[in-house]
Design a protein around this nucleic acid. Structure first.
Length: 239
DNA sequence: TCATTAAATTGTT
DNA sequence: AACAATTTAATGA
């Protein structure tokens, strides 16, 4: 896995297989016809992003729909006083950035690699072609937007109704939404500081909450990574 | 391979 | 926010 990532010696064949990998893992490719699938496969390109690099930047023109092959991209925005807010994370098999493509506007948010991450870029031309030609693709997008809306509504609820432990548990669980992030790895490569940004809490409080959740065998917190052990109970934690 | 050091992350107040 | 402790990664003998 690691050896192929960012390796300048990797062949075209290994590059193409990474594209095949994410297309296999993605929900929206399952209903495409052969012609549609071929067009997608021929135009999507892979890119390796070291931790901290931008997949897309607030204000830049939007030329691609972006999928995550492996790793973790955080969707964040900067506030006026220089602080940044993390809205959500996208993991393996998830795609993002369609909002700017649909509106034909510059990017509204930053997409930043939290750990070393490989992404796939679909050119705008392919994206609009799918919109014009594939009903399954349109159905997928509609569902994805609906899932996202549900996700953000749920997160507002977590903020107001749940104790810190439950907020951490459920925020982490959202990274495993089967529709938005269908192939998320149980092992999340992120520091507690990043986890805190994702949960909208202080690092100290997240640190404390992680200890509690670890004692209950729901996850294991290691140096620079969190491994999910019981996703079902994290999802419903605090009920 | 091992020791040293800097940087990142975690634990705690 | 600050500080100490711990872990990792990089370096060179």
């Amino acid at each position: 896995m690691i050896s192929a990532r960012g390796n300048p010696l990797s062949t075209d064949r290994t590059r193409q297989s990474a594209i095949d990998e994410i297309l296999r893992q993605s929900v929206w490719t399952r209903e495409l016809g052969p012609e549609e699938f071929r067009k997608v496969r021929e135009t999507v390109v892979e890119q390796s992003l070291p931790a901290g690099c931008h997949a897309c930047r607030n204000g830049d023109p939007a030329e691609h729909w972006i999928g995550v092959i492996d790793g973790l991209i955080k969707i964040s925005g900067g506030s006026a006083d220089g602080k940044s807010v993390t809205f959500t994370g996208v993991t393996a098999g998830g795609w993002f950035g369609e909002g700017s493509l649909l509106k034909d506007e510059p990017r509204r948010y930053d997409g930043i690699a939290v750990c070393n991450t490989r992404i796939a870029r679909m050119p705008r031309s392919t994206f609009t072609w799918l919109l014009d030609n594939s009903i399954p693709f349109n159905r997928f997008l509609l569902n994805q937007l609906n899932e996202r809306l549900g996700l953000f509504i749920a997160m507002v609820g977590y903020d107001r109704l749940l104790k810190p432990e439950a907020r951490v548990a459920r925020c982490l669980a959202t990274l495993f939404n089967p529709y938005l992030n269908p192939n998320s790895d149980q092992c999340l490569q992120l520091s507690q500081e990043e986890a805190a940004l994702l949960c909208g809490m202080s690092r100290q409080r997240v640190n404390q909450a992680l200890h509690t959740l670890e004692k209950e065998n729901l996850l294991s917190a290691e140096y620079g990574q969190i491994t999910i052990l019981d996703l079902a109970r994290l999802r419903s934690y605090g009920e």
